[in-house]
Write a protein that binds this DNA or RNA. Structure first.
Lengths: 246, 246
DNA sequence: TTAAATTGTGTAAAATTTACACATTACTAA
DNA sequence: TTAGTAATGTGTAAATTTTACACAATTTAA
């Protein structure tokens, strides 16, 4: 695959195609998907981790990953793994980045594709053993197995950017939520304080919130109004939206 | 790798790790990189394509791709391929997305990682055969080999978004450029018309342009001032920049 | 019934974005 | 040499958006 003499057109062509024999064996690598699943609970942003059982990484936490099957679309893989781990299949799931350093996995060359998912913890009972699967505060995540800290960091940055471009942080909340809960979520994700009045103004202006006509229950103070997110309206507006201004 | 009985903890653990035997052979897939190289010339945004020589895709154009080597970091792969094709190694190169549909490549299962690069056509003589490698107007790109149109579309959208967040479109221009050239570039990338005065104002406010003290030459009208981009200043500002507001 | 906690609301000032016109410069052709 | 052509370079007023900020209303708990 060295650089070719210019006058040799035939040879040149060969370097630009992937021929079947090359795809066969020696050039293959293992491919995995790692899911970074964010949740929100107790006013904290959480991430779902599992305890690694590889000797080298004993007692470390890691992301939820698995190998992509040879006959399986990459996206399908991500949904399969998410479903296997959480039992859910109706979630927002998005590819973030692919990590392909040679030495990133001790079991051999494994290139991994990171996917992010947002779920609301309250509404989904995780169908796994509690001592193996655990929600961690994003603030206290450190020292994960493999290069999972790096992957997590990339996904967290992705999430922070994402919720500023699109109001999808909403999928982290229960179906009905108060504006306080929504603001808490944004403050937790972005790790900043926001002005309450301006935050409301901004969200109402977006016009994606539907007044449920109900108030919060069992709060030791004046209850807040409950809203839900209008996904249909959001999808429609998204189309007529070029993104950022210029 | 099927779903496991909940009460079998030992078995359960196995599904959460990637063990060495699994990495060995049957689970591997071929991995490639495809480079989407944008350039700017004659006031048009261009993309570098090569004529495919696979029978099935005869006479179609395709992106510059190659297989990732088993002992090669993914990013290194992208730079290697870019260098092989263009002779350049000092370029901005960024991973955009990974495409992993089972049937996307006729030679077998090949998952491909798309990388984008921006070069200025004037300054780099491509060291390849002219009839095989060609700059295409992005407007007229269609009917590429494999799923390359889909990959190209994703990269073009990525570029449009990218230049609105960071003024990196500049790397598509010669070292010295006039504001008119800069504006033409942005208009070509975003496919919109911009107000000249406001465009200037915006760019001068960013404070990344250095006045070269020279004017354009050989233009049939009043020559414009020439500027260069201050990469160092840009890098410094980038750090103290959270991105988009909230 | 009073205190504590939190919701809900509006406005004025500041900052940013937009729309827009004319004098200047250099080249070209008569 | 001069007039026409084609583009550069510049400022401001209006509109819009963002920011900062305070007080009355509602509910629970004591």
């Amino acid at each position: 695959m060295a650089l070719i003499a210019k006058d040799n057109a035939q040879k040149n062509i060969k370097t630009f195609k992937i021929i079947q024999s090359e795809v066969q064996s020696i050039n293959r690598v293992a491919l995995s998907v790692d899911c970074v699943i964010f949740g929100f609970d107790e006013n904290k942003l959480k991430v779902l981790l599992i305890r690694s059982d590889l000797k080298k990484y004993q007692s470390k936490w890691s992301l939820l990953g698995d190998l992509v099957k040879p006959e399986e679309d990459l996206d399908d893989s991500a949904y399969r793994i998410l479903k296997q781990r959480t039992g859910l299949n109706d979630l927002y799931l998005e590819q973030v980045h692919t990590f392909g350093e040679v030495e990133r996995h001790p079991g051999g060359r494994v290139v991994t594709v990171a996917y992010c998912s947002l779920i609301n913890i309250q509404h989904h009972r995780l169908k796994t053993l509690e001592n193996e699967l655990h929600w961690h505060d994003v603030e206290s995540v450190s020292d994960l197995a493999f290069d999972h800290k790096k992957i997590f960091d990339a996904c967290y940055l992705w999430l922070q950017k994402r919720v500023q471009e699109h109001p999808l942080g909403l999928s982290l909340l229960p179906n009905k939520f108060s504006l306080r809960e929504l603001q808490n979520l944004y403050e937790a994700i972005l790790n900043i304080k926001l002005d309450r009045r301006n935050f409301r103004k901004k969200f109402f202006a977006m016009d994606f919130l539907v007044d449920m006509g109900e108030d919060e229950q069992n709060v030791p103070h004046r209850p807040g109004r409950l809203y839900k997110f209008d996904y249909d309206k959001y999808e429609k507006k998204k189309k007529t939206w070029s993104g950022i201004d210029f």
